[in-house]
Amino acid sequence: MPTEHDWITTPVTAELLRGALDVERTEHGVLPHRLPARARAQCTDPQLASAESQPSGVRLAFRTRATALELDALPTKRGYVGAPPRPDGVYDLLVDGRPAGRGSVTGGNTVTIDMVAGTAELRTGTMGTLRFTELPDGVKDVEIWLPHNETTELGTLRTDAPVEPTPPSGRRVWLHHGSSISHGSDAASPTTTWPAFAASLGGVDLINLGLGGSALLDPFTARALRDTPADVISLKIGINLVNTDLMRLRAFTPAVHGFLDTVREGHPTTPLLVVSPILCPMHEDTPGPSVLDFTSLSDGQLQFHAMGDPAERANGKLALGVIRDELARIVAQRAAEDPNLNYLDGRELYGESDHAELPLPDQLHPDADTHLRIGERFASLAFAGGAFADRTA
Rank of each mutant, 00 (worst) to 15 (best):
I113V: 14
A39T: 12
L71E: 00
L349C: 00
R223A: 12
W194L: 00
T253W: 02
A230P: 07
E348I: 03
D160V: 12
D245A: 12
D285I: 06
N208C: 10
L235D: 01
T44E: 14
L206I: 07
V95S: 10
G346R: 10
T3K: 11
D354V: 03
R329T: 14
A61S: 15
T270V: 11
M282H: 05
G184V: 06
L302S: 14
L372K: 13
S50P: 00
I374L: 04
D96A: 09
P268A: 01
A199Q: 06
H177S: 14
V274H: 02
G79L: 04
A49R: 15
A49Y: 08
L372W: 15
H183G: 01
E265G: 05
T67Q: 12
T192P: 04
P32L: 03
S104C: 13
D6C: 10
V116D: 14
T191E: 05
E134L: 06
T129R: 14
G29V: 03
D114G: 03
Y80C: 02
L135R: 07
D309I: 12
V274R: 03
R63E: 14
P277M: 06
W194C: 01
V30P: 12
R25P: 09
D345A: 12
S50F: 11
E352R: 09
N243M: 09
T151Y: 05
S234C: 08
V142L: 02
S185R: 07
V139D: 13
P168C: 06
A39W: 02
E27H: 13
V105L: 06
S179R: 01
P32D: 01
L260E: 05
R172F: 05
L175N: 03
P162T: 13
L93K: 05
A328V: 07
H28K: 05
P136W: 08
A387M: 04
D345V: 10
V58G: 03
R226Q: 15
G375L: 07
T129H: 10
M1L: 11
T151I: 15
H176I: 09
T106S: 12
A37M: 11
M307V: 13
L381Q: 09
A37K: 11
G308V: 01
A332V: 12
S53F: 09
L71S: 03
L216W: 06
D231S: 09
V275T: 05
I239P: 00
L381I: 07
P271V: 01
L349G: 00
V30L: 09
T286M: 06
G346H: 11
A389E: 03
T3S: 14
G385H: 08
G316E: 01
R248T: 08
L260V: 07
L246W: 09
G128H: 01
F220E: 15
R329H: 10
T10H: 13
N243C: 13
G258P: 08
A311D: 15
D338H: 13
L146R: 02
